[in-house]
């Protein structure tokens, strides 16, 4: 039995927003795979919960007429991993969702919860960064759209206001079409794992498929929040695919990341992973974009 002082099951997003405005202590619970654990831990013991679990308006994936992908925030990882639209348009994200925990956790965990947690190890975060996702927040003041690069403010901290619910994650057509992507997760086990490092690479090739038109390289656990290696991305724009290119990208990434030492992994070990995983992820992304990596 959980030490929950107050529990409110919202009937709709609007109802949840109202409940949050009425209780400044209240915490949003969606899948619960993080919140319940913190309650049990004692960190959130005695809390007041507003549950958005199971709200139909928060579930599902669609593609708009303009080709924008809209993922409702309450969609579970297992739905995302198996969603036909996502598998066709952003398979990297579907794959990343399939790396979360184990099957039961993927059934309960939601992509919105994963993002709103604000943790750098979230499996979906680096892919969403690479995809330039836009986050749709709905609160008492209405709905606003926040680019993912402006969402995270620190470890476990985001710009989401107390009375706001993350309602959807949007990915514009230009941010996935023509790209090949690859997400690599490094964990100490092959399942039930928090990422030691996550790396998402997206590549769009020049029409002759011999050079990089655009690279996007994002990491989880390489810094206190998920991040992009924007300087490296700029530096290789237009660069020919050569054996040296992967070295340049790896070194660029090493210059931009800021991993920390913790008992889980040392900074030096994480740097080695950054270097190696950038090569492997970019190489695979090039292949997925239709190019040849081994030139």
């Amino acid at each position: 039995m959980y030490d929950i002082e107050k529990f409110y099951q919202a009937r709709s997003v609007a109802d949840a927003v109202r409940a949050l405005r009425a209780d400044e202590r209240a915490i949003v619970i969606a899948g619960g795979s993080d919140v319940l654990i913190e309650i049990r831990d004692g960190k959130l013991a005695g809390c007041s919960l507003v549950s958005i679990h199971g709200l139909a308006e928060l579930e599902g994936v669609e593609r708009t007429a303009e080709g924008e992908i809209v993922i409702r925030a309450g969609t579970s990882f297992s739905r995302i991993a198996n969603d036909p639209i996502l598998l066709r348009t952003v398979p990297m994200l579907a794959y990343a969702a399939d790396q979360v925990g184990g099957p039961q956790i993927r059934n309960i965990g939601t992509i919105g919860g994963n993002v709103c947690n604000g943790v750098t190890s979230a499996d979906s975060a680096s892919s969403l960064w690479a995809l330039n996702a836009t986050l749709e927040l709905t609160g008492g003041e209405g709905t606003r759209l926040v680019p993912i690069r402006e969402f995270y403010t620190g470890p476990g901290k985001t710009v989401r206001r107390h009375d706001e619910i993350l309602t959807a994650i949007r990915i514009a057509r230009a941010d996935y079409e023509g790209f090949g992507g690859c997400y690599l997760k490094y964990g100490k086990r092959n399942a039930m794992e928090i990422a030691t490092l996550g790396c998402a690479a997206m590549v769009r090739l020049t029409p002759d498929q011999k050079a990089i038109a655009e690279l996007r390289l994002a990491y989880g656990v390489a810094a206190p929040t998920p991040m992009r290696c924007t300087a490296t991305e700029e530096a290789v724009r237009g660069a020919a695919i050569t054996p040296e290119l992967l070295d340049r990208i790896a070194q660029g990434a090493l210059n931009e990341v800021k991993p920390r030492s913790s008992w889980r992994a040392s900074r030096e070990f994480r740097l080695q992973l950054v270097s190696e995983m950038s090569r492997r992820a970019v190489r695979q992304a090039i292949v997925n974009a239709g190019g040849e990596a081994d030139v």
Binding site: A250, Q251, L254, Q272
Partner: peptide, 22 residues
């Protein structure tokens, strides 16, 4: 034989070149 220990061992043995920011 944890991953970090292995990487440290391989760096020491010269099987991995140590990396870091320039």
């Amino acid at each position: 034989l944890s991953p970090q220990k292995l990487v440290e061992g391989f760096v020491q043995a010269g099987l991995i070149k140590e990396v870091g920011p320039n």
